[in-house]
Computed example of a mutant assay.
Amino acid sequence: MFIIILFGLLCLLGLVLAWIDIRYGIIPDWLNLTIAGLGLSKAVIVGGFPAGLEAACEGAAIGAIFWLLRRLYFAFRQIQGLGLGDVKFLAAAGIWSGIEGLPMLMLVAALTALACAGLMQLAGRQLTGQTSISFGPFLAIGLLFTSALQQYGSCC
Rank of each mutant, 00 (worst) to 15 (best):
K88Y: 00
E100Q: 12
C57R: 08
L17M: 13
I95M: 11
G136M: 04
P137V: 03
A51K: 04
F74C: 04
F2W: 14
I62N: 10
I35A: 10
Q151I: 01
V16R: 15
A140Y: 01
L144N: 06
A64V: 04
F7N: 14
L102D: 02
G25E: 10
A109K: 05
I141M: 10
V44A: 04
I141L: 13
L119V: 11
I65T: 14
L9N: 02
L40V: 07
C11K: 06
A148D: 00
A93M: 05
I133G: 14
G118E: 00
S132Q: 15
G83P: 12
V44G: 05
T112C: 02
L84E: 14
T131Y: 08
W96S: 13
E58D: 04
L122A: 11
K88C: 04
T112A: 05
G83W: 11
I79K: 15
G39T: 11
A93Y: 05
I4G: 09
G101Y: 01
L122N: 00
V108I: 15
Y73W: 11
A110W: 09
A148Q: 00
G47M: 00
A113I: 02
F76P: 01
C11P: 00
V44E: 02
G118M: 05
A56W: 02
I99R: 09
A43C: 13
G52P: 06
R70L: 00
A75K: 13
C116I: 04
A51Y: 00
V16P: 10
L53C: 08
G94A: 06
P50A: 00
I26G: 08
V46E: 00
Q130C: 02
I5R: 04
G136N: 07
G118Q: 10
T112S: 11
A61W: 06
V16W: 14
N32Y: 13
A55P: 12
G81L: 10
L13A: 14
A109N: 04
W30Q: 12
F89E: 11
G94H: 02
L40W: 01
C156K: 05
A93N: 10
L17C: 05
K42C: 07
L111Y: 03
L10Q: 10
L84P: 05
A61G: 05
L127S: 12
F66P: 08
A51F: 00
A113D: 08
G47P: 03
M104Q: 06
I26R: 15
L53D: 03
F135P: 10
I4W: 11
L119M: 15
L40M: 07
G136P: 06
F2G: 07
A75L: 12
A117V: 14
V46I: 07
G14D: 02
L90F: 02
A60Y: 05
K88G: 08
S97E: 10
L143Q: 02
L105E: 01
L9H: 01
L69Y: 01
Y73Q: 05
I95R: 15
I79D: 05
I26Q: 15
T34S: 15
P28S: 11
A64Y: 03
L9V: 13
L82N: 11
L90E: 12
T146L: 03
L53Y: 03
T128A: 08
G39E: 06
L84W: 12
A60F: 12
L82E: 04
L105P: 01
